[in-house]
């Protein structure tokens, strides 16, 4: 009989070795991030709900005029009425923070993998892994390193939400018409100039679609994130499930959906159309 490959032992050994080497450092990082995120969340929940509602409605008006604005106001009011406001703010902070980290890391990787096929060959299977590996598999070692709480939740969310930014950034840059790239080169553009003055501006719609997708995927992770101590609306869903309180579960669920729709519409619309001429035309 074929001897079984002791892959499990190897991974276990690796994890405990990394922990023994980096454990204290990880704890430090974890505490640090937790302090910051908690502070931000506290600040956010301290803002009167009506102010937040007005700000979001104004953003919605800029993105989609009256219809979206009215929908946003009604939706947010409903969440407030359901007494889920603070949980929603916690979730919002988690989502925005995770999306921000995803974009900060994902954008350069996307650009890099557009410019080098070798990098892409390395990145592509990693992206597949990030999107398909069940979250719990990498959550457990992350829990070992960072303890239960916000940090592993952000980590899990970033892992799951980052791939679209990388993929769509790469795609956007590769789809810049070759004749425009050639023309830029003919006029003596350096690699850097080509990237900033031509490729990124022209890839912007695709990059924005990637950012939008990342925000949406971040939201879809909030329930899992709550299992490892992230709090927010996900925690409400979890506790409703544990007590088999379908009504409460639905309330939390619909709040997540409301937040999702608002974030989606605003992040999508603000990125296209009118913005094109204002932001892209003016950067010369």
């Amino acid at each position: 009989m074929l001897p079984q490959l002791p892959l499990d032992n190897w991974v276990n050994a690796l994890v405990s070795w990394v922990y023994s080497a980096l454990g204290p450092f990880c704890n430090l990082v974890s505490e640090f991030i937790k302090t910051i995120v908690t502070a931000i969340t506290n600040e956010m929940t301290a803002i009167p709900w009506l102010v937040v509602l007005v700000v979001f409605s104004a953003l919605a008006f800029l993105a989609g005029r009256w219809k979206l604005m009215i929908g946003t106001a009604i939706g947010l009011f409903l969440v407030y009425d359901l007494a889920l406001w603070n949980d929603m703010m916690a979730t919002l902070v988690l989502v925005i923070l995770s999306a921000f980290v995803s974009v900060v890391i994902g954008l350069p990787i996307g650009i890099w993998s557009a410019r080098s096929n070798r990098v892409y060959k390395l990145v592509a299977p990693l992206l597949d892994l990030m999107q398909t590996m069940p979250a719990f598999v990498y959550l457990v070692p992350v829990l070992i390193f960072f303890n239960i709480g916000l940090v592993p939740a952000i980590f899990a969310t970033v892992v799951f939400a980052m791939p679209p930014v990388i993929r769509l950034t790469r795609l956007g840059i590769l789809h810049v018409p070759t004749q425009l790239v050639e023309a830029s080169r003919a006029f003596g553009a350096s690699d850097r100039q080509l990237l900033w003055k031509v490729q990124i501006p022209l890839a912007m719609p695709s990059i924005k679609a990637g950012i939008n997708q990342t925000i949406m995927l971040s939201l879809s992770m909030v329930v899992i994130a709550s299992m490892i101590g992230a709090g927010g609306l996900g925690a409400d869903v979890m506790s409703a499930l544990q007590t088999i309180n379908v009504g409460k579960g639905f309330e939390a669920g619909i709040s997540i959906v409301i937040l999702a729709v608002i974030l989606d519409r605003i992040s999508q619309k603000l990125g296209t159309g009118r913005m094109r001429r204002q932001t892209m035309g003016g950067n010369a």
Partner: peptide, 15 residues
């Protein structure tokens, strides 16, 4: 030297 292209190759995001 400067080049002129068959399909113009103007940057659509610039005036």
């Amino acid at each position: 030297m400067a080049m002129v292209f068959q399909h113009f190759a103007l940057l659509p995001h610039r005036t």
